[in-house]
Amino acid sequence: MSDVIGGPEGSGVESVYIGAMTLYPVPESVARARRWFRKFTDPHELACSVDECVLMISELVTNAVLYGEAEDSWRVRVEWWRVGEALRVDVHNPGFPAKVRMREAAADEAHGRGLHLVDALADCWSAGPSRYGGTMVSFSVDGAWKS
């Protein structure tokens, strides 16, 4: 499966679908997302830091579980794509795109730093409407595939 969609720089680079997982909106899904991302991407021998990708996925899935809102039962969907030499990861949830924002967490707060980590580790990230309804938060890591 592939689409021509805007790449990390909006260049219209071909995006190749690599894999996906659908998770229940429960805290245990964060660990499941980490495990399955590693398992599914291992055969691709990514040239980027898989540990950093796993950390960013953990943060975005945590946010989806904590802040996703829906009247009916819902799921969190994580998809990963090859966009040129970049890896793009999309996390979908039923929340509202306008609610995605970086905030300054107080030193004693347990939450509130996830998007700051994504901002620091990813080459780019974005948030907006999901094609499934709700919100999609994405990050891209350049040079994820060996040339």
Rank of each mutant, 00 (worst) to 15 (best):
S49Q: 05
A86N: 08
I57C: 02
W125N: 03
L121E: 11
F40K: 13
V100N: 01
C53N: 12
P94L: 11
F96S: 14
T22K: 09
A64C: 08
D142R: 12
V4Y: 13
V61I: 07
A70D: 04
S2C: 02
S11L: 05
A122R: 06
S11R: 11
R82M: 05
V65E: 09
A110S: 14
W36Y: 12
V16M: 00
K146A: 13
I5A: 08
N93R: 07
R75P: 00
A47S: 12
S140P: 06
R101Y: 04
R77C: 12
V61F: 10
G7K: 07
G12M: 01
E14Q: 13
G128C: 05
V89S: 06
I18D: 07
T22P: 01
E79Y: 04
E52A: 07
G133Q: 07
S126M: 06
D51P: 02
W80F: 13
R103W: 01
R103C: 00
E71P: 00
G6E: 07
G143C: 04
H92F: 11
A64S: 02
P25C: 05
G7C: 00
M56S: 02
P97R: 06
E59K: 10
E79H: 04
W145R: 13
A127S: 10
P25L: 00
M136C: 14
G143W: 10
D90L: 11
L87Y: 08
S2G: 02
T135N: 02
G134N: 04
G19Y: 06
V83A: 13
N63L: 10
G68N: 08
G95H: 03
E109W: 12
N63F: 04
S11G: 14
H116F: 06
N93D: 15
F96N: 15
K99L: 09
E85P: 13
M136F: 02
W36E: 12
T41V: 15
A64P: 03
R34C: 12
V16C: 09
D108H: 13
S138T: 12
R113V: 15
Y17C: 07
S2W: 00
G12E: 08
A64R: 05
A47K: 01
A144E: 08
V137D: 03
D90F: 05
E59G: 06
E52Y: 09
L66Q: 15
L60G: 05
A107K: 06
A110H: 14
F96R: 14
N93G: 10
E71A: 02
V4L: 11
W80G: 03
F96Y: 14
P27V: 09
R113G: 12
S73Y: 06
M21Y: 03
F37L: 06
G12H: 08
A47M: 00
H44D: 13
V13H: 04
S140N: 14
E59W: 10
N93K: 13
A33W: 11
E109P: 01
A144P: 08
E28Q: 15
G10C: 00
E45Q: 15
T41K: 02
G128R: 05
Y132L: 15
A107M: 01
R32S: 14
A106L: 05
S49E: 10
S138R: 11
G134K: 05
V26W: 03
P43N: 09
D142F: 13
A144W: 14
E71K: 03
P8S: 09
E45A: 15
V30Y: 09
